[in-house]
Design a protein around this nucleic acid. Structure first.
Lengths: 140, 140
DNA sequence: GTTTATTTGCAAATCATTCGCATTCGCTTT
DNA sequence: AAAGCGAATGCGAATGATTTGCAAATAAAC
């Protein structure tokens, strides 16, 4: 069934259904939050899958081009890492101390976008919102 | 007076007032939008200033640590570049075709943040919002 | 099963950013 | 204004993440 879902998704996006794409997609599905390419690599190694890092980069590129995933960048201060997130529209609240990430359901932006389109005459296709702060445990 | 402003800013932040820091700060002041380290480097070269790229990285690091500038990341698709922006709170509307950047005055987020703090018990210190789309010229 | 285009592994290349060390510079104290 | 000290700078080399070239393996169509 997992397998089946994947297959459909690949078909819908016109890309081949390969063993490695399945593995990567499974990891992405399991992960509630953005993860790095390397995280995926390590997870797959733990499971005994033999897949090279560059393959993962390539797979993520394909997924991103098809809009199956979205590249996100989490940063503040000097850190800056590129990650992936699932398609659902969602934002994150990131603790500056412990890097804990919490997902936020509501998005205050939808209406604002419409007003902005009128004002700027842009065709707005998406947005990215990240919120920073200190989590309950790190507030001290 | 330019000079003078810079000097005050350096003093306020407890960092030395050097020729190179002045040059970099001037470029940052002139630039309405986030620019890359390399952009700064090229601009300074045009003006005949002799300054090494690594020095600019170091200067920007110092500025960022003092909160004089904020590192921003503009991305969509596979691009991802780290840039700098001035302190004022501002968001950007970015054209996916021509990369034109337009600043947005209003921020829909302020009230939302308060509600979110209550809900999550986080201490929220900041956020980053980037909006993507096609500008009037590229809408086609 | 064969064919054909695509995907993958591997190692090497590339890109931005950082670092080490010798030299120079800015600020403070005379 | 000159001397001394710690910080800032240039240069080139090191690092780390991501990309690429090419030959071999694989998936989808026939």
């Amino acid at each position: 069934m997992e397998e089946f879902e994947n297959q459909e998704l690949f078909k819908k996006n016109n890309i081949k259904n390969t063993k490695h794409r399945n593995l990567v997609l499974d990891v992405l599905k399991e992960s509630q939050f953005p993860i790095t390419t390397e995280d995926i690599y390590l997870k797959l190694q733990e499971r005994g899958a033999h897949i090279s890092l560059s393959t993962i980069y390539r797979i993520l590129d394909v997924f991103a081009n098809k809009g199956m995933v979205v590249k996100a960048i989490i940063s503040e201060g000097s850190k800056a890492m590129v990650e992936l997130q699932h398609l659902e529209h969602k934002h994150h609240l990131i603790c500056k101390e412990c890097n804990k990430i919490v997902a936020i359901e509501d998005c205050p932006f939808e209406e604002f976008a419409k007003a902005l389109e009128k004002k700027t005459d842009f065709d707005i296709t998406g947005h990215k919102l990240e919120i920073y702060g200190y989590c309950p445990a790190c507030k001290e």
